[in-house]
Amino acid sequence: MKILVVDDDPHILELVNIHLTQAGYIVRKAANGSEALKLLEDEIPDLAVVDVMMPGMDGYTLTKTLRAEADIPVLLLTAKGELEDKEKGFLAGSDDYLVKPFEPKELLFRINAILRRYDKAVDILIKVGPLTINRQSYEVSAGKKVILLPLKEFELLSVLASRPNQVFTREILLERVWGYDYEGDEQTLNVHIKRLRDKLKKLAENVIISTVRGVGYKLEVMKN
């Protein structure tokens, strides 16, 4: 997933870039609103992290433009925490609000929560190869074969299928499916991946979940 980060403070810009890149995101950086809108001409990111206090175009104005032109979710960063500023941010169309200084981990939690809400709102049907995943009925089908998956297995498959061939880190999968406050270990994820693999073999042999050693997993459609 691509995330646009806009901040006139180069230190904050690089800090956010490092942590998002380590989490598996592709980051596009901009030092102000004009740079951000120029980047938007080449590609539409999945989410934008925008600083409020910037010279020229402020974060509120940029947020309104991003929502109007690209309709992407926006997380606002600001040094202010007053209720009036929060209200102004939400009225501009932001999805969440994070006050500086912040813990990088909290930034990741909030981004994952926004993307999780956004994905569920946008995609009811996900199609990957012969697979169709229906987020409304929780059915997974291939041709005439239809199965119902337990909720966590279904959510895990939905996340992987939302970006075929993209590697999702273990941390991202745990946060997206089990939530940022999950206190269990990675063995739970391993068990669910194994169960999904067994079920996919019976449903669509050419759709597989590959392990990327030391990183995480990705969903692939193999050529027959």
Rank of each mutant, 00 (worst) to 15 (best):
E155C: 00
A161N: 07
A68E: 14
V128N: 04
K100Q: 11
E87P: 00
N134H: 08
P130Y: 08
D42T: 14
R135A: 02
Y138K: 15
P55W: 01
P164L: 06
V167M: 07
E69Y: 11
T132E: 15
V167K: 03
R163A: 13
I147C: 08
V167P: 03
L76K: 01
D46T: 11
M57P: 07
F102M: 12
R163W: 10
F154S: 06
K144D: 13
P130S: 10
Y118L: 04
F109M: 09
L83F: 08
Q136E: 15
Y118V: 12
V74C: 06
R117M: 11
T65P: 01
T61C: 03
V167G: 07
K145T: 00
K105I: 12
K105W: 08
P104H: 11
T169K: 09
V50C: 10
E171I: 05
I133F: 08
V128C: 11
K80T: 01
K144V: 03
S158E: 05
K144I: 04
L131W: 05
E106V: 15
D42R: 14
F90K: 03
R117T: 11
S94Y: 00
K152Y: 08
A48T: 04
M57H: 04
F109S: 14
E69M: 11
Y97V: 00
D119L: 14
R117Y: 08
L75F: 12
R116V: 00
F168K: 01
E84F: 03
D58T: 10
G93H: 04
K145G: 00
R163M: 13
G89N: 07
R163C: 03
E153N: 13
K120P: 00
P45E: 08
Y97S: 00
F154R: 05
S158N: 07
Q166T: 10
A113D: 12
M57I: 14
A68I: 02
A161R: 09
E153M: 10
E43I: 09
A48V: 00
E87V: 15
R135F: 02
P73M: 09
E82Q: 14
D123V: 10
I126M: 10
K145A: 13
D46K: 13
S158T: 14
T63I: 09
F168W: 13
S158R: 11
F102V: 09
P45C: 07
D58R: 07
P150I: 01
I133N: 04
D96T: 01
A68F: 03
V49Q: 06
E139M: 12
Y97D: 00
V140T: 03
E153T: 01
S141K: 14
N112L: 05
P45G: 04
V146S: 08
P164Y: 09
L149D: 05
P73C: 09
A121S: 14
T61Q: 14
E106L: 14
L157E: 02
V122L: 15
L157C: 05
V49N: 06
S94R: 00
T132Y: 06
L77A: 04
E103K: 13
V167A: 12
L156R: 05
L115H: 04
Q166D: 13
R170Y: 13
E139R: 12
P104W: 10
G89S: 05
L148F: 12
